[in-house]
Computed example of a mutant assay.
Amino acid sequence: MKIFIETERLILREILHSDVDSMFEMDSDRDVHLYIGNNPFTKKTESEANVEFIREQYLQNGIGRWAVIEKTSGNVIGWAGLKLITEMCNNRSGYYDIGYRFIKRYWGKGYASESSSAVINYGFNQMQLSEIIGIADTANLASVKVLERAGLKKIELFNYDGKLHHWMRIEQPLTQEYNMVY
């Protein structure tokens, strides 16, 4: 197992089939899915299929969401990472989207901000990306704040699945290294 990113409190690594139980705990929670389609999973097979889908992205695109492990407990607490978006969204495709999702009992601990900053650092320094995009439902104020804290700026509003969303972006800084404090 290759560790991709390590921060002060977290390890981000590839998602494994053994992570299905944690992924199901997260994705079966209605509150977790409130701003992402409001369609929580009802069967563990949905999480199994999702894990397989993410693992396929690693093979096809060289990148995908990573499991986030809390160092102190060793628990998988959610996922974070970059995803290459190849389908059209807001009349764009071929961009890298930053995302994160956590089991509800780990909310409010700063893990979304910590992992997002680390993911952006990875995208700019390891992948040499010129920009990273973030999308957030305008009603999801916590997620918008996480993206802003990570340096993304609101660019425009657009309709996504019938709801207003922010299209947010951060561009590769002029300096060679992008370092954020985790």
Rank of each mutant, 00 (worst) to 15 (best):
M1F: 13
F4T: 15
E6Q: 12
L12Y: 02
L12R: 04
V20S: 02
V20L: 05
S22Q: 07
M23T: 08
F24V: 03
F24P: 03
E25R: 11
D29S: 11
D31T: 13
N39L: 10
F41T: 03
T45Y: 10
V51Y: 02
Q57Y: 09
L59Y: 11
Q60T: 14
N61G: 01
G62L: 10
V76L: 12
V76D: 02
I77E: 03
G78D: 00
W79Q: 08
A80K: 01
A80I: 06
A80V: 00
G81I: 01
G81E: 00
L82P: 02
K83F: 05
I85F: 06
I85T: 11
E87I: 10
M88C: 14
G94A: 09
Y95W: 15
D97Y: 08
I98W: 01
G99N: 05
G99M: 04
Y100S: 11
I103G: 00
Y111Q: 07
A112V: 04
V119H: 08
Y122S: 01
M127T: 05
Q128E: 15
L129N: 08
I135S: 03
A136R: 05
S143Q: 04
K145M: 04
K145G: 01
L147Q: 04
L157G: 10
Y160S: 13
R169H: 06
R169A: 10
P173C: 07
L174N: 13
Q176S: 14
